[in-house]
């Protein structure tokens, strides 16, 4: 077979890339079950102690709950806003609106560190640093592009005539959107929401700048604790976060599969 060598190379490359993606995660998970006081690999023995250390620690739990709350709130804001923006961008014929799309995408184009510094300076003026409101606003802004892009992609393949028909059949514009358009673009909205949630959950750089005091976030606390001591609690937390994100992704892809199957 003439094609066997290129095929072999392709397999090797694919394998290498997958390994590169999965190995670091695998190593973190393995180390989270270590019984050593240090982050050593391979771990000398198995134990649950670092999970106990994480779930038993008041400060860690506060930071975790706070992060979950912030991620939920910011998702609740940026899903409707991002969906509305995508809808407008999709139906509008105005060239001005088309140019405004770029503004919506700036949070992913500007380096995070610049964004964080900028937020810090603005928040310092209005007293929003280390507040829940400030963090929720920042996370919503940063994750808006994910919702926007995902929903826009969904709308592009949706036939807007359906909404026109729904209106002629007696529904107002908003009701037509809710009854006809939304059910059909739901997978794109869900994907956008998922990315927004996970993005907010592990946002570190911005947290380092504008979180603090009562309003600690989990990634920020992890970063701070890494500076002082390196123990496998971090690995246990990471493993827990990975499991959560993974579960969400799998859940949403399962849902969209059953939908397609129906």
């Amino acid at each position: 077979m003439t094609s066997s060598l290129p095929r072999l190379l392709l397999w090797i490359a694919t394998g290498a890339i997958l390994a590169f993606l999965v190995l670091p995660i695998g190593i973190v998970i393995i180390m989270s079950f270590s019984d050593s006081r240090f982050l050593t690999f391979p771990p000398p023995g198995f134990s649950w102690r670092w999970y106990a250390a994480y779930f038993g620690d008041r400060d860690w739990m506060d930071a975790t709950l706070n992060s979950l709350l912030l991620a939920s709130l910011s998702t609740l804001i940026c899903v409707p806003v991002g969906t509305a923006a995508a809808y407008a961008a999709n139906v509008s014929a105005s060239p001005l609106l088309r140019r405004l799309q770029i503004v919506l995408l700036t949070p992913v184009m500007v380096p995070v560190i610049i964004l964080a510094a900028g937020l810090y300076m603005v928040y310092a003026q209005v007293g929003l640093n280390a507040t829940k409101l400030g963090l929720v606003c920042a996370f919503s802004m940063m994750n808006l592009p994910y919702v926007f892009i995902s929903v826009l992609a969904g709308l592009r393949s949706f036939d807007m005539n359906q909404e026109n028909v729904a209106r002629s059949l007696g529904l107002g514009r908003f009701a037509a959107f809710v009854k006809v358009t939304l059910p059909q673009i739901r997978p794109s909205v869900a994907t956008g929401a998922l990315f927004a949630f996970i993005g907010a959950l592990d946002e570190t750089v911005v947290s380092i700048f504008i979180a603090g005091g009562e309003n600690q976030t989990l990634p920020r606390r992890m970063f701070m604790s890494l500076r002082n001591e390196i123990d496998p609690t971090i690995a246990a937390i990471s493993a827990a976060l990975i499991t959560l994100s993974f579960a969400l992704v799998v859940l949403s892809s399962l849902r969209s599969k059953t939908r397609q199957g129906a």
Partner: peptide
């Protein structure tokens, strides 16, 4: 008058049925 107040039945080329 917006479409929902006009009481008209429309049929388009691609039918625009609601697939869900």
């Amino acid at each position: 008058l917006p479409p929902q107040k006009r009481d008209i039945g429309v049929v388009f080329q691609n039918y625009a049925l609601f697939p869900h």
